Simulated scan of single mutants.
Amino acid sequence: MTIRLHFVGSVAVVTVDRPGALNALNFQMLEEFSRSIDEIRESHAAGVVVVGAGDRAFCAGADVVELRGRTPEQHRGGADFGQQAFAKLADLPLPSVAVIRGPALGGGLELAMACTYRVAISGAKLGLPEIKLGLIPGYGGTQRLPRIVGTEKALEMITSGRAISADEAHQISLVDDVVPEGDAVEIGIRYLHTVSNGYPASVHLARQAVKAASTLDIQAGLQLEAKLFARAVETSDAREGMQAFVEKRAPEFQGR
């Protein structure tokens, strides 16, 4: 197996495990990744951490050797499958974080961008270098990067193919934090606890509302917000949160 899944408490940890090839993605890995996300969806996980195996790379991109000699139809099918695999991660009803050590290039950055959050360890490099091979990103890079950093910056990164530092990535909001060297899984779990406040059920509802803001006009977005707010109020976690506030104590959320 080149994609490993294990659980640390309520957090699912997905490891891209091909360190001898800088964790480069091949089609077998995409299939294993897709199955892992299906397993997470059926589990009781409250969050997901995605890391690369070893200390050299998060994921150096797609396995270019595997791409040679394929027909246009095969390339289209491969791109569709990669996009679908990463969309499964993006569409999970729970927060996810990619912890990036070393390079996250091409498909590796596309994988990271499918996560809710990205945390870079100092020294990380991020980029979409496909243009240097006469290609363009095919696993969602042309669509997710502009939504994160804006059209002009995304176009510059994609057409130049240059890799940027962790600090520059933080400046343009491609990563949410830059941290010193440490255990990637522990970094990811700590970050999820920080941004998810104990993983109340409302995290999923908040993600739905914010993601819709990029596709809905303001009136439709406000209507969706009101609908999701009403659903949040009816959760057990909301009742616990409000009761804890009245009793001046920390809430004990159950994710329901």
Results as ranks from 00 to 15, higher is better:
253 F>Q: 02
71 T>L: 13
77 G>I: 04
256 R>P: 05
38 D>T: 11
56 R>N: 05
91 D>N: 07
92 L>I: 01
20 G>F: 01
239 R>S: 10
8 V>C: 10
36 S>F: 08
210 V>H: 07
20 G>K: 06
226 A>G: 05
221 G>M: 01
19 P>C: 10
221 G>S: 12
221 G>C: 13
118 R>Y: 03
226 A>I: 10
76 R>F: 08
96 S>G: 07
216 L>E: 12
46 A>N: 01
15 T>Q: 04
54 G>R: 08
17 D>Y: 09
200 P>H: 08
178 V>D: 05
73 E>F: 02
139 Y>A: 07
130 E>V: 01
207 R>Y: 14
233 V>W: 00
39 E>W: 04
86 F>L: 06
208 Q>R: 14
98 A>R: 02
177 D>L: 15
29 M>T: 02
242 M>Y: 13
54 G>P: 04
21 A>H: 09
133 L>A: 12
243 Q>K: 13
255 G>W: 09
220 A>K: 15
169 A>C: 14
60 A>P: 06
178 V>P: 11
6 H>M: 00
73 E>G: 00
228 L>N: 08
204 H>P: 06
148 I>Y: 14
172 I>L: 14
163 A>H: 14
166 A>W: 04
187 I>R: 09
142 T>A: 15
43 S>K: 06
175 V>M: 11
17 D>Q: 00
157 M>Q: 05
160 S>G: 11
220 A>N: 15
37 I>N: 07
213 A>V: 06
166 A>D: 15
82 G>F: 01
176 D>T: 07
163 A>I: 10
146 P>A: 02
184 A>M: 09
214 S>E: 14
99 V>W: 01
208 Q>Y: 04
98 A>C: 14
161 G>Y: 04
111 L>P: 05
89 L>H: 05
244 A>Q: 10
124 A>R: 08
76 R>T: 08
77 G>L: 12
143 Q>W: 10
70 R>Y: 05
66 E>W: 12
182 G>S: 03
1 M>P: 09
174 L>T: 11
162 R>E: 12
133 L>N: 08
143 Q>G: 10
159 T>M: 15
65 V>F: 01
14 V>I: 03
139 Y>H: 07
249 R>I: 01
190 R>D: 13
144 R>Y: 01
204 H>D: 10
228 L>W: 11
109 L>Q: 02
163 A>P: 15
78 G>N: 12
35 R>P: 05
25 L>Q: 02
129 P>C: 01
240 E>I: 05
105 L>D: 03
117 Y>I: 09
47 G>F: 08
132 K>W: 01
28 Q>L: 09
225 E>S: 15
206 A>S: 07
131 I>T: 02
14 V>N: 00
212 A>P: 05
15 T>H: 06
81 F>H: 02
21 A>L: 13
101 R>V: 03
218 I>F: 11
170 H>V: 11
144 R>L: 15
58 F>V: 11
133 L>Y: 13
86 F>C: 09
16 V>I: 03
148 I>T: 15
4 R>S: 10
248 K>Y: 07
151 T>E: 15
132 K>F: 12
42 E>G: 15
